[in-house]
Amino acid sequence: MSNPALPGRSDLRRALSSNGALLAVIALLILLVLVGAGLNDRFATVSNLTNVFEQSAGLGLVSLGQTLTVLTAGIDLSVGSMMSLISTLASGLIDGDLARAAWVIPAVLVLAAAIGGGNGLLIHWLGVHPLIVTLGTGTVMQGVVLLYSLTPTGAMPFELEWIAYDRFLGLPIGATITVLLFILVALMLRYTTIGRDVYAYGDDPEAARLMGISQRKVLIFVYAMSGFFAGLAGLYLSIRFGIGDPYQGQNYTLASITPVVVGGTMLTGGRGGVIGTLFGVLLVSLLNNLLNFLQVSTHLQLVVQGLIIIAAVSIYIERKRGLA
């Protein structure tokens, strides 16, 4: 049990170690493309890689928000229910009418951020582990969305389909916007006070408190972001499929954590970042795509997914033992 806890670790060393994880993911990504190209000549084509990129946008958006909660040593297990809630609500209220979409979409995004912020506030007030709080609120949300509708309902306006399907300069629009959002959040984490507070709080909540950083503010911020991006993912997927589904997000809760971990963000908080997650999303999506090409059964793909998580967390040994 070698535990590389390094008291007084310098900033330089920290930068190197987090960049090390980032470089490792990028190297793995390149390796995967090269190996894939050798194994199947249709894999490393521009059209296939672009398709994989396009399909990874939904997972990318949820994982982007999830990264922020993990950076504070937390976790958001309500993201899947949030996606289902927002997509079903939006689709039901819009019902194919573009004019209604103009107010429904902003309204449901505000709702998503507000519910997420509520998660943060609850965690702060109750002092209960985020895992339990978000599991609880996520379960409540799932119940509420099923009260609203048990089956996919309404319709998203087809006039918006370009977001999910069109290309600009050969790049899929939805996925490209997702990448821009990743960059925006990365800049926000680096150059704004709240962004630096997130890292400080995740690294050592007690020290952060002594430095005058408000726990309440940090928690509301990261869970609001997580809720917002989960809501955005729900909207994106419902636009892509044309309709909202009360079970849409079901598999996304746990799936959103894999890219975060693979991208080198520690579940114990304070280390890693969203750019790692971006490459984590691409890595997971490309690997699934390659396994499809190699006609590996979807059953064995699950085994591979489990192995990736174990490999990732075993490589980036965590500093302190925590629940999540």
Partner: peptide, 17 residues
């Protein structure tokens, strides 16, 4: 030193596969 959440999540997914 893997967090229990992830360790047992990973084995759950693998067993399912």
């Amino acid at each position: 030193n893997v967090s229990p959440f992830l360790a047992t999540l990973a084995t759950a997914i693998m067993l399912q596969g």
